[in-house]
Design a protein around this nucleic acid. Structure first.
Lengths: 188, 188
DNA sequence: ATATTCACTGAACCTGTATTCAATATACTA
DNA sequence: TAGTATATTGAATACAGGTTCAGTGAATAT
């Protein structure tokens, strides 16, 4: 294995383990030494790759922003289908590639008070509520989505998604909901 | 003002301010001095009332457990009505008595990894999902609630409630959903 | 083959923040 | 009114955990 590959691998190892721990235990509750220990490396090495704990966090949030920039253009006929498809994809990922939804939870965490302002702003730059509100408007015109403030509806939907993912991290043994149930928040 | 009253008042002052800060900024991110400062009292005084930061947290969780023990027996004809009423009450409290839903969020936080085990167990002892699942079963028999694993349905409902409250703390300017929308997760 | 770079370690260092404590002011009690 | 208990303060202390760094050995380059 070339040195470059080695390096990339380590960086990934570190960042994904950090994601896992930040999300399950919280940022402050996760010690740098926890991450190092979980990976079987020294604390010093971690600082060789990331200059600080905060930098590591920022790298994660940046990764999260990037990941949501290229939306995997979901195919749909009716707007309600879009929301169901999206939730389905997410819930499936929850089992196969935990990082997808861990990232979701991280992004939400990063939007709170007490987070360094630059990182917070970064996380805040991703605004799914606004984006979905547009799709909801279409659904209302088409008659498949209930009446009401599109932003409020969108917010309700996203809160539910967020809630499901956070609780799933706390209690992974709980059965995940059907994607359709969440969509029913919006359906007429 | 008698000394006893004085004491009780201070304790309440402290604990409610702590609740507010723990919930908005997070436990570790909240300094004892933040709480003291917000109240205009000295750090030392805070320790006069609560022996440690952890004890303060535990007192809050205990308060949360107590509060949920006496469920304000909600009146309802159909089970779906129960869930709507509940959410309505909660969302209304969000504006009038912030502590009600701050407590909700705190209890959820307290169930995570990284929290001292005894406190965590305390928080875990409140299990709304199980309780609601029973009501959901009745609704399914009555035909007003959709088919599916009652526990999964109950979980979905609670995740949404939880999600709404957490996001409302992050973005208080967002319009709160209608209680009925959330109930639609369950409705047939 | 030698020099250079770089992954890696563990212990020392430093800072922030919880906690302690001696001192003071104020309220109760007799 | 004297004496005791309690509320309150701010500065000193302790320590956890993030960060630095000098040193080692293996990979890479020349």
């Amino acid at each position: 294995m070339t040195r470059k590959e080695q390096k990339e691998m380590r960086q990934k190892q570190i960042i994904f383990k950090a994601l896992e721990l930040f999300v399950t235990k919280g940022f402050s509750e996760t010690k740098i030494s926890d991450i190092a220990e979980a990976l079987g490396i020294s604390v010093g090495l971690l600082f060789h790759y990331y200059e600080s704990k905060e930098a590591l966090y920022k790298a994660l949030v940046t990764m999260g922003v990037e990941a949501t920039k290229r939306p995997e253009s979901i195919e749909y006929n009716d707007p309600t289908e879009y929301f169901t498809r999206f939730a389905q994809g997410l819930f499936k990922a929850a089992e196969e590639q935990p990082w997808v939804f861990q990232m979701f939870v991280l992004m939400s965490q990063a939007r709170r008070q007490g987070i360094p302002e630059d990182i917070r702003q970064l996380a805040l730059s991703v605004d799914q509520v606004k984006f979905s509100a547009e799709i909801i408007k279409k659904g209302q015109q088409a008659g498949s989505i209930k009446e009401g403030d599109p932003t409020a509806l969108s917010f309700a939907y996203w809160c539910s998604i967020q809630g499901v993912m956070e609780q799933h991290i706390i209690s992974p043994e709980m059965p995940l909901p059907e994607a359709e149930w969440i969509t029913d928040i919006l359906k007429k």
